[in-house]
Amino acid sequence: MQKLTWQIISLWLCAQPLLAAPSAATSWQNIEYIERAFIEVALKNEYRQTDMKLVKWVAPIQYQFTYLGLPKNPFIENLTVTHLKQLHTITRHPITHVRTGHAPNLQIIFTKDQHYQEAIQRYIQKESKALSRDSNCSASFQLNQQHEIINANVVIPIDYVMSRGLLPACIVEETTQVMGLPNDSDWVFPSIANDKSKLDLLTGLDYILLKLLYSPDLKPGMDRQQIHPILQHLLYQWKTSNLIQGASKKVKESGLYPLIY
């Protein structure tokens, strides 16, 4: 039997002030900075020690919406589908909706705040006690022995996050992190991985991190030493082709940006 590992991620309440940005508006586009950010966000996890190995989906993602104590909400589903389509556009990884009766490998659970703890215990599995009220929304994913993500759950208490203006942030951060970027970091900026930055939507840096993660050259289970030369090659290539310089503009052309801004 294959050993399975659960990784827990969550969007935490943030009362701290906005962190200072890098010294210049474009400093995140530095190749060394991007590589350091990728290692920080992709190989670490804020809730548990990891073996510093790359994790990602290999099988197509098939998602389904589940409601706990709530009626179906087409508006919120549309927001989520729009973001998932953007994730597919960036990564080129298959992400499709499956109807009731088919087994999903990604469940997106919408619930009320009063059922949030129950939903965490049911869907997020282990290490869930600390997540309930200190977090706005939560997610987890499950790995096989090859460090492939094989299953994931996202839980969003709709009334709670809407009352705080956090619905887009919860949809974007949790579904993006279960792609295989599970760690939050106070210094990675600009990025949804930085909770203190209060960014709701994907940034140019997030765009590049996702494209790196789903490059065919990066395989689940690779460690930092194996990843380094591949990252350097890709990033120098993308710098030359102006992909990095144009990432901030490109990421705003799809997803929730046209709906919100």
Rank of each mutant, 00 (worst) to 15 (best):
L205F: 03
F189A: 12
D195V: 12
Y236G: 09
L205Q: 03
Q237D: 14
D184T: 06
S241F: 10
A193Y: 07
D195F: 12
Q237V: 10
L234R: 14
T240N: 13
H233W: 11
Q237M: 10
L202C: 07
D217C: 09
K239D: 11
S185N: 15
G221Y: 01
T203N: 01
Q245H: 10
N194S: 12
G221P: 02
K198H: 15
L205M: 04
L199Y: 15
L202I: 08
S185F: 12
T203P: 02
S185I: 11
G221S: 04
M222E: 10
R224V: 14
D195Q: 15
K198N: 13
I192E: 02
S241R: 15
D200S: 14
Q237T: 15
D206K: 02
S215W: 12
I244N: 03
T203K: 00
S197Q: 12
L209F: 06
S191C: 08
K198G: 12
K219P: 08
Q226H: 13
L199E: 15
D184Y: 05
L199N: 09
L234Y: 07
M222S: 12
Q232N: 10
Y214G: 00
K211R: 14
S241N: 14
I227L: 05
N183C: 11
K211A: 04
W187R: 13
T203M: 00
Q237R: 15
K239C: 07
S191Y: 06
G204N: 04
N194L: 06
L234W: 07
T203I: 00
L202T: 07
Q225M: 09
L218Y: 00
P216L: 05
Q226D: 13
G221R: 01
P229K: 02
D186M: 08
L205N: 01
D223A: 04
K219L: 15
D184R: 04
D223P: 05
H228N: 12
P220K: 04
Y236L: 15
Y236M: 13
L210D: 00
K219R: 13
G221M: 03
D206N: 05
I230F: 05
P190C: 02
L235V: 00
W238D: 06
L201F: 08
G204P: 06
Y214T: 03
R224P: 08
H228P: 07
M222L: 14
I244K: 01
I244G: 02
T240P: 06
D223R: 04
L243K: 14
L210S: 00
Y214M: 03
L212Y: 03
N183D: 05
P190W: 03
R224L: 09
S197V: 06
A193K: 09
T203R: 00
N242G: 06
K196N: 09
K196E: 11
Q225T: 09
Y236T: 08
L213E: 02
L201M: 08
S241E: 11
L210H: 01
N242F: 12
Q226W: 09
N183P: 05
T203V: 01
K196R: 11
P229S: 02
I230H: 05
Q232D: 11
L243F: 13
H228L: 15
L205D: 01
S185V: 09
N242K: 12
N183Y: 05
S241P: 07
K239A: 10
Q225V: 07
L243I: 10
Y214H: 02
Q226S: 15
V188F: 03
L235N: 01
D223T: 05
Q237G: 12
Q245E: 14
P216V: 04
Y236A: 14
L234E: 08
L213M: 05
D186K: 11
D217S: 14
F189L: 14
L205C: 01
K219A: 09
